[in-house]
Amino acid sequence: MQKIYLGVDVGSVSTNLVALDTRLQVLETVYLRTMGHPVKATQEGFRELQSRLPQFEVLGVGATGSGRNLVAAMLGADEVKNEITAHAVGAAHFHPEVRTVFEIGGQDSKLILLRDGVVIDFAMNTVCAAGTGSFLDQQALRLGIPIEEFGHWAIRARQPVRIAGRCGVFAESDMIHKQQMGYPTEEIIAGLCEALARNYLNNLGKGKEILPPVVFQGGVAANLGLRRAFEKMLNMEIMVPEHYNVMGAIGAALLAAESMKDRPSSFRGADFILDGEFETRSLECNGCPNQCEVVSIHRQGQVLAYFGDRCRRWDASLKSSKVVSRELKKAAR
């Protein structure tokens, strides 16, 4: 039976699963769209993985991405890590000498600086998502070009048009304006790529020392136009790893492998994941002035986990007495 480490990255746009063997080589990767249903996407991804690897035993599970807590409860993850660490670990695994990681995903972008294999600084977009995957998707759709070909259009351009890239909405209106003026589509797309690269470097790269080797990963790394724009602007080569779109999941699997050593995995098993009816609910806790929005995940009506309460009293209630739960029921609106 194939022994694997499972890594799951549930992002806003895509849900990715990877299986690593015990030598930590990539066996299989699954990339699919989350479509707003992280639980369903994870189930589908797991089913897909099962069809490709008919017989396997899970030695450890790592979860990352914005939906990490949700799927961790569902899968029984051994390691739950933030995306920044997961991506850094993934990049350093394939390129031990890496000093800069660009990661652009569906709605987040990150810049991670490593020296001697260790993260020394990072930045993450906070106020604006211009230039991330969702925005590029939307523009490709508007121009009627499949997103996979978007970048190739950009590199066919003779000369990029200047597009205002500070804000996603204004970038779009500027693109429309340039279309109305009659610029060829290739040149507008190339201009957009440059604007987005500029925006990224200004927002995240502010005051940070970007040194080669640079690894570019995340779904947007498929965009050749953006990669070229970075290369031109920084005057250095940008590497895109083979598994660029699932590096977070690989990082999570590696972290799980690292943390497992000899203890058994808390993986819940295929039946639990695939046969169960999962449901998520939310409530506003009135236990204190914070009024946290508490989300819970249920399987067959039974609560698996609570998230979002700052004091963790909801989560703690799963392990303690009924009195607490009654008290909590009163606090819920």
Partner: peptide, 25 residues
Amino acid sequence: EHAGEVGIITRLEAFLDMIRWRKMK
């Protein structure tokens, strides 16, 4: 008032990982 708590926690965790990683090194 627009800050997202998820983003805050992600950055805190990553910052602590970074420090622990550095200390190991």
